[in-house]
Amino acid sequence: MLDSSADTTDTGIGKFLTKATHWLLHTQEGVLFFIVAAIWLFLTIQSPVFFTGRNIGVLLSQVSMTAITAVGMTILLISGEIDASVGSMQAFVGVVVMSVLNSSSNLALGILVGLAIGVVVGLINSLISLRLGINSLIATLAMLSIVRGAAFGFTEASIQNTHKIPTFTEIGNGFFLGVPWPIIFFFAVFLIFYFVLSRTTFGRFVHAVGANPEAATLAGIPVRLVKMAGFVLTSVLASFSAIILLSRLNSGQNGIGAGFELEAIGAVLLGGTSLSGGEGSMVGTFLAVLLLGTLKNGIVLLDINSSWQVAVTGLIIIVAVLLDARRRRRLGQD
């Protein structure tokens, strides 16, 4: 529609510009990009430390946990399901992995156990949602309570780091070629699944399953298997986030991660992924995570009362969704 109306020049630059303008003006990603860019510009002017390597490093490290979980959540939401249990996973995986590390002093074993918990919880989630036919929001909200209970049941007090494995501390705090490890993990996970979602058969299946499960079934797509993969993937990535967080905190805390699920799901929805499935964008998720992280960072840098953070986060979500809704209506009317 737009390609025909815009007077397309055949030169590469012209094409690129048309495409870029379209992206900026007509997609949720573009809207988010605008907002993020505006806030970054504002903060750069307001605070001398904002646009420095160190601060950007801190900012991206901080959001890497939410981002890694949100990558899985994006795929799951596109397939038409949701996982609200990822918040409690941060606590449960944390306490279990720390105690495994303490008793075994084996880093690989600890990480494997952590990821295995992800697989198991993902399987349970998909079993309840897909086999018992319970709406996944409800099923995983219940799992949110159950996993939190399991964390408390596992240990009453927080579990301190007594193994002192140096590599373990590096996961959340170390650098590789000057870049913090959490950022490398975050970008790697993002790029891999961006590719999976947009270029592979699995990615096509995910979209098809979410858009219309009946049609997907008729087309011979293994609907349940695809959704199950989404559940397990989300849960495993949530465990991965939990391991990074564990390394950053240096102790297994069973009270943490409350509201983490809202942050992750909120970011995915803000990124333009539809709740009803079939539609979504990994880049949108990335930008949304960045936006929410920037708000937190900026409010501390400018030494604004932290209460504003909650209010501004809410208002930005509303504004972003409003802009997106207006964009959709405009496209609909064109």
Binding site: V49, Q62, L249, D303
Partner: peptide, 22 residues
């Protein structure tokens, strides 16, 4: 600077990381 760490370690890590860059 005074920051709100909500009394919990994960929030404290987050807000103090930002405050320490400033």
């Amino acid at each position: 600077q005074s920051v709100d760490g909500a009394g919990s370690k994960d929030v404290a890590v987050q807000v103090s990381a930002d405050a320490l860059t400033a």
